[in-house]
Write a protein that binds this DNA or RNA. Structure first.
Lengths: 203, 203
DNA sequence: TCGCACTTATCTACTAGTAAGTGAGTCGCA
DNA sequence: TGCGACTCACTTACTAGTAGATAAGTGCGA
């Protein structure tokens, strides 16, 4: 363990080396992509050797799979939290978009968004995890949209699932484009239109 | 020249080696990204050595800049062509979305979309070219939207430029997500909603 | 004979990955 | 209580392979 026992009672919660590696890898993956960082980059940051990383994640594909597993779990928790906190479909959608915005304000992208760009180069397991992420987001959004329509909070024509998909596409694209061109402000404007387009009553 | 003079009169138009290199690099960049292919990949495909590629593009950043220059030029021509061919803003928007769909149906993404994901790893010149691409697309779309609104073909609230941006984000995102999750059909559905959201009269 | 388009051969830097070893700590047992 | 066996978390030192890049040389057509 990097964090000695001395620190285990400190205010800062002690993190295992494996967690610190995942944290560093996640930050880098959300910024430069999975192929954009090396074991050496993380090793340098954590002041360990690359062999240490191999000890915890024997292959980079394992690191990637663990990365996506943890990310998907955290995202699911965030979505459940939104349902607990917000009781109108309109504020739920806004909170959903806020999840994306917060990531961008740290100069990062959605992990699955940036990995979708690298999709063709990724191992099979990671591909499946990315697809599963989009599917579960679509399902969550479809629930929100459906409930909103039934309660009269939202109005839109056509399939609920299609609109859910369109929102994901709009937000992922806004993240991608706004990072290069326009920043957080532009993301916010685009996100507002994406939500209002799929659910006019939001505007 | 790879294509001997023998073929210069053939049905297939003769391409210089530099063009063939750009063609191969473009296909790969739109599939696996700029960092996802190497000089060796292209050299293998074209049955030349990597030194040949260096002869035409001394550094990979030069190749990237030329790639983006050519892509942006072709895109501009395609946009001018749409204005020439289509005379309603509704069909112009559809044709614009079709540009994206055609790329996806070949298993590729918009070059600037996929490079936007790699933005942090790219040389300065390429970054500027990517930003310029989005800016010129935004300007073109804003013109179409503005004219459509003035002619009563389109109806939407707020800034024209913001809606233009939202369309770009929606289509780029749909490309990204649909390649991994759902394919061309799903792209088409998402694109339809993106256009109808920014311009309700399209639906 | 000049020079364009290209090859051969090579370089350094970096990639993921591995084998072997080390020191600290824990466990079971007499 | 003390000691050997063992495990955990790591390092050192290394590998094969690949990245972009370069210098020097070749062949062929104008």
């Amino acid at each position: 363990m990097l964090t000695a026992l001395l620190f285990s009672m400190a205010v800062t919660p002690s993190s295992s080396t494996a967690d610190l590696i995942l944290d560093a890898a996640e930050r880098r993956a959300q910024s430069v992509g999975f192929n954009g960082f090396s074991y050496a980059d993380i090793a340098d940051e954590l002041k360990v050797t690359t062999a240490t990383i191999h000890y915890h994640f024997s292959a980079k594909s394992d690191l990637g799979a663990d990365l996506l597993h943890r990310y998907a779990q955290r995202f699911r928790e965030a979505l459940a939290d939104i349902i607990r906190r917000e009781h109108s479909s309109v504020t739920q959608l806004r909170a959903y978009a806020r999840l994306y915005e917060d990531v961008l304000s740290e100069g990062r992208l959605c992990l699955c968004g940036i990995l979708a760009a690298e999709y063709e180069t990724l191992p099979a397991q990671m591909r499946e995890q990315i697809v599963a992420f989009f599917a579960s987001n679509e399902a969550w959004l479809a629930n929100v949209l459906q409930a909103g329509r039934e309660r009269g909070e939202l109005r839109f024509a056509g399939e609920t699932r299609d609109h859910a998909m369109a929102i994901i596409c709009g937000l992922e694209g806004a993240l991608l484009v706004a990072r290069a061109y326009g920043g957080v402000t532009r993301f916010r404007v685009a996100a507002e239109i994406v939500l209002s387009g799929a659910a006019p009553a939001v505007a």
